[in-house]
Amino acid sequence: MENLNDLYATAKDEFEIAAEETEKKTVYAAEDREAAQEALKTLKEAFEKAVKESHPEVGKEVQSRVGQRIRELENAVKAVEEMALQD
């Protein structure tokens, strides 16, 4: 669970940087969005592995604690990508 929290914090930080750079339309925006996508992908892979390899009760707890936050972050990353496409 701690590993997932660390990965979530990293992915969220990458997203925030990407959102800020995309909003400012800096030359780094595309790279930052890519980094956010990679961090999200790493988080999702670790989440799926944790759910699959844990005891069923633990897997359910991981899903309830982390699953919603991942979906929210995933939607936010998609929104930044769409914002970038509009420019």
Rank of each mutant, 00 (worst) to 15 (best):
L7K: 10
Y8P: 01
Y8R: 02
A11Y: 13
K12L: 04
D13M: 15
E14H: 13
E14Y: 09
E21Y: 15
E23F: 14
K24M: 07
T26Q: 05
V27M: 04
Y28R: 14
Y28E: 12
A30K: 08
D32K: 15
R33M: 14
E34G: 09
L40G: 06
T42P: 02
L43H: 10
L43N: 05
E45A: 12
F47W: 08
K49R: 15
A50Y: 00
E53V: 03
S54W: 02
H55Q: 09
H55W: 09
E57V: 06
E57S: 08
E57C: 04
V58K: 12
V58L: 14
V58H: 06
K60H: 12
E61F: 09
V62E: 00
Q63R: 12
S64P: 06
R65S: 06
R65N: 00
R65V: 07
R65H: 02
V66N: 06
G67V: 00
G67Q: 02
G67S: 04
Q68W: 10
Q68F: 13
R71P: 04
L73I: 11
E74M: 05
N75K: 11
N75F: 03
N75V: 13
V77W: 06
K78E: 14
E82P: 11
M83W: 07
A84C: 08
A84D: 00
L85Q: 11
Q86K: 15
Q86W: 06
